[in-house]
């Protein structure tokens, strides 16, 4: 079994999840509470990875972070090396690829908070941002947990985007799903089957744990 590939995937999934938590909450907040009429455009862009082939997303990310793009050049001049075929490049691609799996559960939960609770808080002199922190976030634990778990699990199993952006460098960009693909290509079915089974069990345990936790997470009254 390719332990280094598994470890890389876990690191990638964890990093991506943390980044998505940091940027997904503001994006979801904006989607739910903005009164801009054109916000459906942003919602559509966030949801794109759900329907776009990973290779297409991967291709554009590769172009966007490559040495010919402004972003790629800035990064290269700061870091001394380019983004493609690095762990950082993979994180950028994974964040974009898993974005809907974080933002959609977040925003669905934010939107489900009874609006009168927000109005009550505002009338008590509490600012909109503080109201979000003190009322919306605590009542959205369920959606936050769902978003975190789905982002993690989705990144853990990603294949096409990684291959396009990261290639197949052992220990750097060879994630667990690529190592399975490699094993099958080289007819090492025993290794492929062990790794696949491990991934299956890990994914199942994560999801099962989440669903069981959600049952006992404090019950939020639904209106």
């Amino acid at each position: 079994m390719d332990w280094s590939a598994l470890w890389l995937s876990v690191r990638l999934a964890a990093t991506t999840t943390v980044v998505l938590l940091a940027i997904g909450i503001p994006i979801a907040y904006w989607i739910v509470f903005s009164s801009w009429r054109g916000k459906f455009l942003v919602e559509a862009i966030v949801a794109l990875p759900l329907v776009l082939p990973p290779t297409v997303l991967g291709f554009y990310v590769l172009v966007a972070i490559g040495p010919l793009s402004p972003l790629g050049r800035v990064y290269a001049s700061v870091a001394g090396h380019g983004l493609p075929f690095t762990f950082e490049g993979l994180v950028i691609a994974s964040v974009l690829y898993s974005m809907p799996f974080a933002v959609q559960p977040f925003s669905a939960e934010f939107a489900a908070v009874d609006r009168r609770l927000l109005e009550a808080s505002w009338s008590l002199g509490v600012s909109r941002l503080e109201t979000f922190r003190r009322v919306v976030l605590p009542l959205s634990i369920r959606g936050l947990v769902t978003g975190i778990v789905l982002s993690f699990a989705h990144t853990l199993g990603e294949f096409g985007v990684v291959l396009m952006v990261g290639g197949n460098l052992p220990g750097v960009t060879r994630t667990v799903s690529i190592s399975i693909y490699d094993a099958v290509q080289s007819l090492d079915y025993a290794s492929a089957s062990r790794t696949s089974l491990l991934l299956l069990i890990v994914s199942f345990v994560i999801l099962a744990t989440t669903y069981s936790l959600q049952r006992s997470v404090w019950i939020k009254p639904r209106h």
């Binding site: 009874d114 009168r116 009550a120 808080s121 009338s123 939020k220 009254p221």
Partner: peptide, 11 residues
């Protein structure tokens, strides 16, 4: 402000 339904913060 008080509404018809008591809108207390449930948490």
């Amino acid at each position: 402000l008080v509404f018809q339904e008591p809108t207390l913060f449930p948490h």
